[in-house]
């Protein structure tokens, strides 16, 4: 097991190297001049040249690449053109918001998706099965941002149940502790016995999490169903039935434990995709995370920020995939014990 982990981590290195390389050259070779972006259209040639020298843009491309690589391995992604702050710092500030949203969305999607998939498989071709699979198919066919808007229209504007955006009631003048507002709210509750921060954080999280989680939910439900159907036809389910194990236990323990193997992989992939899907949802829900930030960075052609953002999101994506692979081998004894 230990050797497996080590081997997978070593295999990761060339991929990450490739990610950094691709991110660097895609932006370095793209039309447009970062110095011009920073100084605006009316800057003098002298100022432009000065800034280029300062940013190292006058050096040969390969040298810039080497320099960039050497900084990236120290987690230094340069300085944001737009804000003047270190990109690493900006990302670190915003990351908890995105992770919190993605985690909430994923918990919602996994739980609901698995339960729906299991119930649908149990009663194959029943009304519940047909209805939930039709809903799942519609779910994967929707534009996320449209769903987000429709949800805002119905639940925020129409029914006035949830706020339209943000992470916390702005009148609370809240100072984050960890950056994960749910956790922060909980800490405050423990320390001061005041639940209002926790409640407000939760209140703000529901709509974006559900919107972001809908597509993964649909996919997870579909995969769970087909995986369950396959497992329920296996011989060992017949054995369990002939041993008098109660149906409920057969479904949720004997079958589900096996059926979850492919589902775990799908959950991992979807979680990775959620981080990028956040570009759309965060923009709509004014959620101050990486997605919204990256969107504005792209809009402003803030090269260091875009490079940094891409590298970080892709790295997390790759790491999650690795984690899922490892988790898969932990829950699958046939791999674990090899």
């Amino acid at each position: 097991m230990g050797r497996l982990i080590l081997r997978r981590i070593v295999q990761l290195i060339p991929t990450l190297f490739g990610v950094v390389t691709l991110a660097f050259f895609m932006l370095a070779l793209s039309p447009g001049d970062p110095a011009r972006v920073m100084l605006g259209e009316r800057a003098s040639q002298a100022r432009l040249d000065e800034l280029r020298t300062q940013l190292g843009l006058d050096r040969p491309l390969i040298e810039q690449y080497g320099l960039y690589l050497s900084r990236v391995v120290q987690f230094d992604f340069g300085t944001s053109i737009k804000s003047g702050r270190a990109v690493t710092e900006e990302i670190a500030d915003l990351f908890p918001a995105t992770v919190e949203l993605a985690l909430a969305a994923m918990v919602f999607a996994s739980f609901t998706g698995i339960v729906l998939g299991v119930l649908a498989a149990r009663k194959k071709n029943s009304l519940l099965d047909t209805a939930s699979m039709a809903a799942a198919l519609i779910g994967v066919s929707m534009p996320v941002f449209w769903l987000a808007l429709v949800m805002i229209m119905i639940f925020s504007v129409g029914l006035n149940l949830f706020p339209t955006g943000g992470r916390m009631n702005i009148r609370y003048y809240f100072t984050p502790i960890t950056g994960f507002y749910l956790l922060d709210g909980f800490i405050v509750l423990l320390r001061e016995g005041d639940p209002k921060y926790l409640m407000s954080a939760l209140h703000h999280l529901v709509l974006p999490a559900v919107a972001l989680g809908t597509i993964p939910l649909a996919i997870i439900a579909r995969v769970t169903r087909s995986s369950m159907l396959e497992v329920l036809g296996q011989d060992y389910i017949k054995t369990a039935k002939s041993s008098g194990i109660p149906d409920f236990k057969i479904t949720f323990v004997y079958a589900l434990r096996n059926a979850l193997l492919p589902v775990v992989t799908v959950i991992g992939i979807q979680f990775g995709l959620l981080l990028s899907g956040a570009i759309l949802t965060e923009t709509i829900f004014a959620w101050p995370g990486i997605g919204k930030w990256l969107y504005h960075a792209i809009e402003a052609r803030d090269y260091p920020a875009v490079q940094g953002g891409i590298i970080v999101i892709s790295t997390v994506f790759v790491l999650i995939n690795l984690l899922v692979d490892l988790l898969y081998s932990v829950i699958n004894p046939r791999i674990r014990l090899q």
Binding site: G18, V19, L22, L275, S276, L280, I298, I313, S314
Partner: peptide, 22 residues
């Protein structure tokens, strides 16, 4: 190897970045 690296980028992010560059 190149395909693996491309797959390391989440799909929508890759699209957004490419179109932002073009």
């Amino acid at each position: 190897r190149i395909i693996d690296i491309m797959l390391a980028f989440p799909y929508i992010l890759l699209t957004i970045v490419i179109v932002a560059l073009l």
